[in-house]
Design a protein around this nucleic acid. Structure first.
Length: 460
RNA sequence: GGCCCCAUCGUCUAAUGGUUAGGACAGCAGGUUUUCAAUCUGUUAACCGGAGUUCGACUCUCCGUGGGGUCACCA
């Protein structure tokens, strides 16, 4: 392992969205690429807003994404070092205690600690942006602690980073203005200034910093909706980064191989949820049949298993695979009418005979001059039913063989006038799977039974 | 407003002085074994503006303009 160390320091004050985790991802990729250490540090110096629930959310998110870390710490547990640093700065007259009225309007006089700003120009080299110079004079003597026992962000970060020997600080561009004052503190403490890489911000539709407030989903919500971690990883990495070339679908391993800070964009990038959907579909295609079934099954309501046997459910899931964007679409499979007809008879008391008849009868635009009546439809269904009855066990092994057996008849009579009533009698859905897939899923008996029901209504 | 950063299709981007400015998502059109998907094919669409530098600028420089970030006893 090299001596390179990076870290991801989220504050547990909310469920972070994809923008924050992209920072974690960049750090992780950089670490793996360079055979370095990746640290997770929970920044909870703001005790009022920090919550255990959020800390757990961070850990769960990282684990779900598969971003393992080589070290874990909680900032508040390093309070002794922070206090020591505050004392050291005060003793060396690089900081001082100042009696001031509390900002909360209470009128209480408190003793806060301010940094004695040397008022100089700080220049640092950013690995993405290049040289950046800032005159720190206008920062004034900024506050570094609420009191001698209670450090604030800048002080805590600098002390912690120094102690864990962080060499590369990879963080969002919104931290760029924090960098000069942190460098001032590092210098005052006599520590080593790390390398900085400020990555472009992830923007919302309005081109402003992505935020929960504007509807950005947390990583945990994506997990809940049935997105694949590999898709989130892939999509997030491609916000503000592109390895060049035309390949876009990458696994985590491949991402590590091609990751390079020099290929990180400088400008902010708008997050496109529609493209994330595409990434997810592509990553679903990468799954083996068994992995896919296993993944998707965890999103299906338990009652479905009572209504349909595992064998049939597997058939349904495999056939439905191409149209699935994310697994959570199956979350109401037990009641969603775009799925229920696949495993429950659509012929129920809610539908009138007239309704069923109008569905099964070939619509005008599809007739192509042919004369279609209830009687002819009944006759066609009769023929189709007989063909299905003649199918052998092995014919039911694939959609393809079922189609083969029915195809000649459909061509002879006219595809539209055979296939439409067939599909409708099996599904009673305006939009549905094709009839061959339906017969494959339903099996001989149920297929024939549904067709017979449609037929009996045709006769009335 | 001060300070800092950025600027290629609607969006994400490729191009590192010489290309008909490429790809992906979305859009549109069409094909496909009925519907809806899926899939295949085709297609619309961009170098923020102005000066330079150069034989030659998307690429380099400067000035505008636009956008963003940040100005806490939050992180």
């Amino acid at each position: 392992m090299t001596n390179i160390v990076v870290r991801f320091p989220p504050s547990p004050t909310g469920h972070a969205h994809i923008g924050s985790y992209r920072t974690a991802i960049f750090n992780y990729l950089f670490a793996k690429k360079h055979n370095a250490k990746f640290l997770l540090r929970i920044e909870d110096t703001d005790k009022a807003r920090s919550k255990m629930e959020y800390q757990e959310g961070i850990i769960e998110s990282l684990s779900w994404l598969g971003l393992g870390y080589d070290g874990f710490s909680i900032q508040s547990e390093n309070i002794e070092s922070h206090k020591k640093a505050i004392q050291k700065l005060i003793v060396e007259d690089k900081a001082y205690v100042s009696k001031e009225e509390a900002k909360d309007g209470s009128g209480v006089i408190k003793e806060i600690v301010r940094f004695r700003n040397p008022n100089k120009v700080v220049t640092f080299k950013d690995l993405i942006l290049g040289d950046i110079s800032v005159d720190t004079t206008d920062l004034g003597d900024f506050v570094i602690a609420r009191n001698t026992e209670d450090p604030l962000y800048h002080l805590a970060v600098v002390v912690d980073d120094t102690e864990s020997e962080v060499t590369h600080v990879i963080r969002g561009m919104d931290h760029i203005s924090n960098t000069p004052r942190q460098i001032l503190l590092i210098e005052a403490l006599g520590a080593k200034v790390p390398e900085y890489a400020h990555i472009p911000l992830v923007l919302g539709e309005d081109k402003q910093k992505l935020s929960k407030r504007k509807g950005a989903l947390s990583v945990l919500e994506y997990k809940k909706r049935g997105y694949l971690p590999s898709a989130i990883l892939n999509a997030a990495t491609f916000i503000g980064f592109n390895p060049g070339g035309e390949k876009e679908i990458y696994t985590l391993q491949e991402l590590i191989e091609v990751f390079d800070l020099s290929k990180v964009q400088k400008g902010g990038a708008v997050f496109n949820p529609v493209k994330l959907d595409w990434f997810n579909q592509e990553h679903m295609k990468l799954l083996s049949e068994d992995t896919y079934i296993e993944f998707v099954t965890s999103f299906i309501p338990a009652v479905v298993a009572e209504k349909v046997d595992a064998q049939t459910l597997r058939k349904i899931l495999l056939i439905v695979r191409d149209r699935l964007v994310f697994a959570g679409e199956l979350e109401h499979m037990d009641t969603d009418s775009s799925y229920t007809y696949m495993f429950e008879s659509p012929y129920d008391s809610h539908r009138s005979d007239e309704e069923i008849q109008s569905l099964v009868l070939v619509p005008e635009k599809m007739k192509k001059g042919a004369v279609v009546t209830a009687a002819t439809t009944h006759a066609i269904l009769e023929d189709v039913k007989n063909i299905i009855a003649s199918l052998t066990e092995s014919d039911f092994n694939s959609v393809e063989s079922i189609k083969e057996k029915l195809w000649a008849y459909a061509e002879e009579k006219g595809k539209g006038i055979v296939l439409w009533p067939l599909r409708m009698s099996l599904t009673l859905q305006e939009k549905s799977l094709d009839p061959f897939s339906m017969i494959y899923i339903l099996g001989k008996d149920e297929s024939i039974s549904r067709i017979q029901k449609a037929q009996s209504i045709m006769l009335q």
